[in-house]
Design a protein around this nucleic acid. Structure first.
Length: 326
DNA sequence: TCCCGAAA
DNA sequence: TTTCGGGAT
């Protein structure tokens, strides 16, 4: 499906982890895990992460390696998992499935001609979030006492809602959709090496001089996960025309154009399915022994693969514990 | 998603 | 100057 390049419109700034210390971040679990699944697997091959029953649980390694980043900087993560998939997203979902199948085919071909490098590279593209991955991720997070929230629909929408309500300080996601979903502050690049990037909704709106509703209309014109945009219209044109005419309908009228499901897509961003039925405690008391046993005994991940990550988690907890007394 | 080069 | 399309991650 078409995709709005909202990056060029968003107000982004580099921040340091020090500025975020003490914050609570609602992490879009799907988004976050996917990054680890595609990167962790790529460099190491999949044998190590497959149980005797053939389950792929690279996500457990991803979590153990990814969590220290939060703890070491005194950031508390709250993981928000997806519930059902929005019906309008069917087209997007089947497109991704098609891409995955294509990658699987190419990988098979690469294996047949003995091109291991290419096969490993393609492996990353075949990853998906299976039920086992969802389940085991939750199992590990629970043992680490990291809050887990189940969204009624999209995790991104639920996380944004929680941020809007002030129950968390940030949404953690790589997507720009959180702007449309009303998240005041979104942290990007929480999984990569350097400093995180902060996306600021208020600043975005005031820089562009548009309302939240207009920003949604701009995105719809360019195309989103839920609708095809208008060809020839990118962020610049969409911004200009929405400001000129006021909103999506008047722009479409002026261009004598039409967007399928535009009203429903708009509603999905303005008022997505979310729940108020959540609560969490940010004072974490992880059971590291249970977590280690879960990963290495129950799910057969070699202990040395996760040793360093667990050490870092342990150290960071001792560290923050001491901080309270100094 | 990001980046880059082609095309308009 | 902006959008589009392809390739790498």
């Amino acid at each position: 499906m078409g995709n709005a390049d909202l990056r060029s419109l968003a107000s982004l700034s580099e921040v340091s982890f020090d500025d975020l210390a003490g914050g609570v971040v609602a992490v879009d679990a799907h988004n976050w895990l996917y990054r680890y699944l595609t990167t962790t697997v790529k460099f190491t091959g999949d044998e190590v992460y497959t149980t005797t029953e053939g389950e792929e649980v690279a996500n457990l390694i991803g979590i153990v390696q990814g969590l220290p980043k939060f703890f070491e900087h005194d950031l508390t993560p709250v993981f928000v998992f997806d519930g059902g998939v929005t019906e309008l997203k069917d087209a997007e979902v089947s497109e991704r499935r098609a891409q995955r199948e294509k990658a699987e085919e190419l990988k098979k071909e690469a294996e047949e001609r003995g091109d291991d490098m290419e096969a490993a590279r393609l492996e990353a593209r075949t990853q998906r979030l299976t039920d086992v991955i969802h389940e085991t991720s939750r199992g590990l997070l629970e043992r680490l006492d990291v809050p887990v929230i189940e969204a009624p629909a999209e995790g991104e929408a639920q996380a944004s809602y929680m941020a809007k309500q002030g129950d968390v300080d940030y949404v953690g996601s790589e997507d720009y959709d959180t702007l449309l979903l009303g998240a005041p502050y979104t942290l990007r690049q929480l999984t990569s090496k350097g400093d995180p990037e902060l996306m600021d909704l208020e600043a975005t709106l005031s820089d562009l001089d548009v309302t939240q509703e207009q920003l949604i209309d701009i995105a719809i014109l360019c195309g989103t996960d839920f609708n095809e945009g208008i060809s020839g219209v990118g962020p610049k044109t969409a911004l200009k025309e929405v400001k000129e005419h006021g909103d999506l309908w008047t722009v479409l009228e002026a261009r004598d154009d039409y967007i399928e499901n535009a009203d429903r897509v708009r509603e999905l961003f303005r008022d997505p399915p979310v729940t108020d039925d959540y609560e969490f405690d940010t004072d974490l008391s992880p059971d590291l022994d249970a977590a280690r046993a879960y990963v290495s005994e129950e799910w057969e991940v070699p202990a040395d693969e996760v040793a360093r990550g667990f050490e870092r988690i342990e150290d960071s907890l001792v560290q923050t514990g001491l901080d309270q007394w100094t």
